[in-house]
Amino acid sequence: MYLGAAVMLLLGVGGAVAAVLLHRATSVAAAPVATLPFLSGWRPEEHALSRFHARYYPVTLLFLAFDVEMLYMYPWAVVVAEVGISAVVEMFVFLGVLMVGVLWAWREGALRWV
């Protein structure tokens, strides 16, 4: 069942490696050019890899709440037809509560991050 996926993974990785090897033969020089990162023509004053201020991190927490909810969503999708209307009500009350949380976060400005 997962054999196809495994073979595809091998093929994909192998293909990418093969492309890199092919490139060694076709490019004007096999070794990469050593260079500074592009900075409009200037030398960087410091390394770019740093503690980046991802100002949208409140949204990641909100996202996490919904993402965990997806754990229930997939099994629910399979059984909703059998269980009937009660499953629909329960799930959407749950989603509704989460959505209220989103609206509250929106009103608090958590979705605005510039």
């Binding site: 409009s40 390394h47 770019a48 740093s50 201020h53």
Partner: peptide, 21 residues
């Protein structure tokens, strides 16, 4: 090339500053 240095971000966390011309 030195590593990036920190600076106070607007929400009180210390985050690095980069000079990007």
């Amino acid at each position: 090339i030195p590593l990036a240095g920190g600076g106070e971000a607007r929400d009180g966390l210390e985050m690095d500053l980069l000079h990007v011309p």
